[in-house]
Simulated scan of single mutants.
Amino acid sequence: MPHGFDGAVLRALGAKEHALTVRGTTRLAPHFARVHFDAPTLFQQATDSPAAWIRLWIEDPLTGVEFQRAYTISAADVPEARIDVDFLLHEPAGPASAWASSASAGDRVIAQSLGSTSFAPAPDASGLILIGDAAAVPAINSILRSLDPQREVRVLLERSHDEDELIPLTPHPGAEVRWIPRDGSSSLARAAAEMLSPGMQVWAVGETGSLKALRPVVKERAPGNRKSVHIQAYWIEGRAMGRERRV
């Protein structure tokens, strides 16, 4: 069983380690892969809720080091104890991207969960906007699936490559979707300024620099309480996010 300081801390907090076994993979877009897992014990702790996520420990077979990365549960079949996880395949490849690009049936990873989720509807909000990039698509898709068909929602996505727009989005009749090219850390904030209005619920995840520029725009254009604004960094340009441990 994997070990290490970070794993021990999570276990002390009640996050058990769950073995996931790959059933197969599906390439959803040129650089976007879905890995299908059997997860026989995961739902003892994890939840099938909008934007729920788990921590995966990805092992480098050459060094014996495991890297922790957080991923959204893209789809779940709780009675069958199965989940799907989507991976953005990028270059240079990080440990999770490299693993997912060559994953095959029978491969195993360890997952931990504390029932993590990051979206809940704000009942007093005048509208909803979901903001992110390619890495945020799995979470945004899970939120779109949870919304009432009559609910209007704006989706603002930043693309680093033209192929990002080939990543499938959950169809929703009330969704207005806009993709914009990434042009530095301020491009997302500039586009959001045109779409925000007072009283909106804002759910935004993505690159740290982009979100740093976005925060003051949200505060100015869509002021609200803590329950109506969620801004969370998923990645840092030029740096790795996550922990590591030795097996």
Rank of each mutant, 00 (worst) to 15 (best):
Q201N: 04
I167V: 03
D133S: 12
E220H: 14
D148H: 05
L166K: 07
V205D: 03
M200N: 11
E220W: 11
L169I: 14
M195L: 15
R151D: 00
P171I: 01
P121V: 07
R145K: 13
D124H: 13
S197L: 08
P149Q: 05
L157P: 10
V218Y: 08
T117V: 01
E220L: 14
G199H: 15
T170H: 00
R154D: 15
R145Q: 13
E176V: 15
H230Q: 00
R190Y: 11
P216T: 14
G199T: 13
S185C: 05
S142Y: 08
G127K: 11
S186N: 11
L196P: 10
E163M: 03
L156R: 04
P138N: 08
I143S: 02
S185L: 06
E220K: 15
P181K: 00
A193Y: 09
K227F: 05
L196T: 11
R145L: 08
G184A: 02
A189E: 11
D162H: 11
S186Q: 15
S187Q: 07
R159T: 15
V218H: 07
E163Q: 05
R151K: 07
P223E: 02
D164I: 02
E207F: 00
L147H: 06
E194G: 05
V155R: 04
V217C: 09
P171S: 01
P198S: 06
A213C: 09
H230Y: 09
I129C: 04
H161P: 03
E158T: 15
P121C: 05
V229I: 15
S186W: 14
L114T: 06
R145A: 08
V205Q: 06
M195G: 06
E163C: 03
S197F: 10
A189V: 14
S113W: 15
M195A: 12
M200F: 14
G206M: 03
